[in-house]
Write a protein that binds this DNA or RNA. Structure first.
Lengths: 123, 123
DNA sequence: CCGGATCCAGAGGGATACTG
DNA sequence: CAGTATCCCTCTGGATCCGG
C-alpha cells in the first residue's frame, strides 16, 4: 500500500497515513461518519468536484481496508449504498483531532499574516 | 499548498493534511517531538533512507508553516539545528492519536488475515 | 445508476554531482 | 556540513468514453 518500504521507522504512522492519503478520503469519510449510509450518487453530489473514477477508486480502497461497507442491491437501475463499518468508526478518534487542529491552524496562519501587515505599516 | 482548490468542503481537514502530507514529514516530526533540537546530519542518521534533497525540502516547508525552527550557526563547518516550535508542539495532539490508531490498525489487519487462513482450512 | 477501461499531464520523490 | 542543481521516473489523479 505504501509506495516502497518501511522508511526505516514508525510503521504505525505509516499505516494511519495510508488510510487518509488520497485527496478525497478524508472528505468521504467525514460524510460517511455523519451516520446514515449514502448512495453513490449522493456522495457525488456532496463532493462536487470529484470524478466518478476517483470516487469509486477511493471507496474501493476503503472497502478493502475494512473502513466502509458496500452493499449492492440487485435491481435495475443499480443501487449501491456505502456506510462506515463498525471498525471504521474508530477513525473518528483521529479525524476529529485533525479537523479541530486544522481549523485552529487556519486561524493561526491568518493571525500571522495580519501581524506581518502591521510590521510593514510600522516601518 | 493544496494542489488545486477547496474541494468544496472541510478546509480544516485539508489544512491538517497539508502539514502531514509528504512522505517524510510525520517521521521527521516524531523525531523532533522527542525533545532536543537536532542537527541536519543527526536527522539524516535517524531517518536512514531519506535523501538530502527531501530532508531539506520537507524541513523548509515545516519551517514556513511555523512548525519547526531553524537555527544557523555562522561557523565553519556549518552547523544548523532544527527544533519544534512551541506552536509545533500542538501537533502532538493529532500525531499521537494517529500513531496509536495506526498500530492498532496493523494488528487488526493481521487478525483479519489469520481469519482468512482459518476459513480456507475449514473448506 | 454505477463504475470499468484507457489515455494523459503533472507533481512528488529519488539518484547523483557540485558548492560555500 | 549542509545544503543547491539537475535529471529522471513513478504514481496519482483528471478527462473521456464505454458497458451492464
Amino acid at each position: 500500500m505504501s509506495k516502497r518500504e518501511p522508511a526505516g521507522c514508525q510503521p504505525g504512522l505509516e499505516a494511519a497515513m495510508d488510510i487518509l492519503v488520497g485527496k478525497w478520503k478524508p472528505i468521504i469519510l467525514l460524510h460517511l461518519l455523519q451516520g446514515e449510509r449514502k448512495r453513490f450518487s449522493e456522495l457525488q453530489r456532496l463532493i462536487p468536484n470529484i470524478t466518478q473514477k476517483m470516487l469509486t477508486a477511493q471507496l474501493r480502497e476503503l472497502e478493502e481496508q475494512d473502513i466502509v461497507k458496500r452493499v449492492v442491491y440487485p435491481v435495475v437501475p443499480p443501487r449501491v449504498e456505502y456506510s462506515i463499518t463498525e471498525y471504521g468508526l474508530t477513525l473518528d478518534y483521529i479525524l476529529k483531532p485533525m479537523h479541530d487542529w486544522g481549523r485552529a491552524h487556519l486561524k493561526h496562519m491568518q493571525e500571522k499574516k495580519s501581524q506581518l501587515v502591521e510590521e510593514v505599516r510600522v516601518e
